[in-house]
């Protein structure tokens, strides 16, 4: 396998992680725990397929996916900010809720318990060169750009400065007249939209929705955030690292040298090792999980 192909494969796998991690960094920096990334992604994936199926346009699919992420982001925000529910419980609840809802509508819309019919995507499946195929997919570019864009928003704009202040010391922000709930609403809503775009990419890349297709990617993204110490750029690098491990795993499965079960463990073992080795120095935003009063 050529290096470019390997790289293209890594990027293909990394895109959902990048979107989800970008969303997660934003919400967590504002002080809201992002356990719902998985649910946001799954909702985005399903809504994208629905939109693309009925309109025939992947762009409509993308729009539907973003709206779905926004909706569930707002559910998260209302429950955890307005009603001060425990953010971890809310996150888990949203994940379970989305699994149920997508399953229900999968049967309702497509009369299937496993997958949707084929829908239009941005790029045709890689028959020849996956490198070139990826280049033509706007979501690949968006995913890659999400990291520098997020860095700019977080460190160069008033909104980013306020997000960082609110997640670290909400009382201080409040005394300066900043409306803490409003900043958090914005961050969590954007986080839902960004994570959903990861799901949109996943579904449109495969041209269909399959039940539970995000398969824990939201949690890997969360691991990347912690590994990246809540910094957009470092989290992005962590996403690429995890994607590289997964690519390696796929390549090694063919070789028979090691039992495939062990090979499949590689990304997850790497995740645990990375977290165990780094987490000591990885300090979360001080107000993470704490609702303002």
């Amino acid at each position: 396998m050529r290096f470019v192909d390997f790289l293209a494969q890594v990027i293909r796998i990394a895109i959902p992680y990048l979107f989800a991690a970008a969303g997660g960094v934003m919400a967590e920096k504002a002080g809201v725990v992002s356990l719902a990334l998985e649910g946001f992604m799954l909702s985005g994936a399903f809504a994208a397929v629905l939109g693309s199926f009925y309109s025939g346009s992947p762009w409509i699919g993308l729009l539907c996916g973003i709206v779905a992420g926004l909706l569930f982001g707002l559910v998260h925000a209302v429950a955890s900010i307005r009603y001060r529910a425990d953010q971890i419980v809310v996150g888990i609840a949203i994940n379970l809720l989305v699994i149920g809802i997508t399953r229900f509508f999968l049967r309702l819309a497509f009369d299937s318990s496993s997958n949707s019919p084929r829908v239009a995507g941005f790029s045709e499946p890689a028959q020849g060169n996956i490198f070139l195929a990826s280049l033509s997919n706007p979501l690949v570019w968006a995913g890659l750009l999400s990291v520098p864009l997020l860095t700019w928003v977080m460190y160069r704009t008033p909104f980013g400065l306020r997000i960082r202040a609110v997640g670290e010391h909400p009382e201080a922000a409040e005394t300066l007249g900043i409306r803490v709930p409003r900043v958090r609403y914005g961050a969590v809503a954007l986080s839902g939209m960004l994570a959903a775009m990861g799901g949109v990419y996943l579904a449109l890349d495969q041209h269909q929705f399959t039940d539970g297709m995000t398969a824990g990617r939201g949690f890997i993204a969360l691991a990347a955030i912690i590994f990246g110490r809540w910094d957009p750029a470092r989290a992005g690098i962590a996403c690429l690292l995890f994607a590289a491990a997964e690519t390696l795993q796929i390549q090694l499965q063919g070789t028979q040298a090691i039992p495939s079960q062990f090979v499949q463990m590689i990304p997850y073992v790497l995740t645990i090792v990375a977290l165990a080795g780094v987490v000591k120095r990885s300090v979360p935003p001080a107000a993470l999980g704490r609702s303002a009063d």
């Binding site: 008033p158 400065l161 306020r162 960082r164 202040a165 670290e168 010391h169 009382e171 201080a172 922000a173 005394t175 300066l176 007249g177 900043i178 001080a286």
Partner: peptide, 18 residues
């Protein structure tokens, strides 16, 4: 103190009216 420890002096001062 109502200061955000992870931000710089300048960021703390201008926060809210950047």
């Amino acid at each position: 103190f109502m200061l955000v420890p992870t931000l710089t002096v300048t960021e703390n001062v201008v926060l809210g009216r950047e």
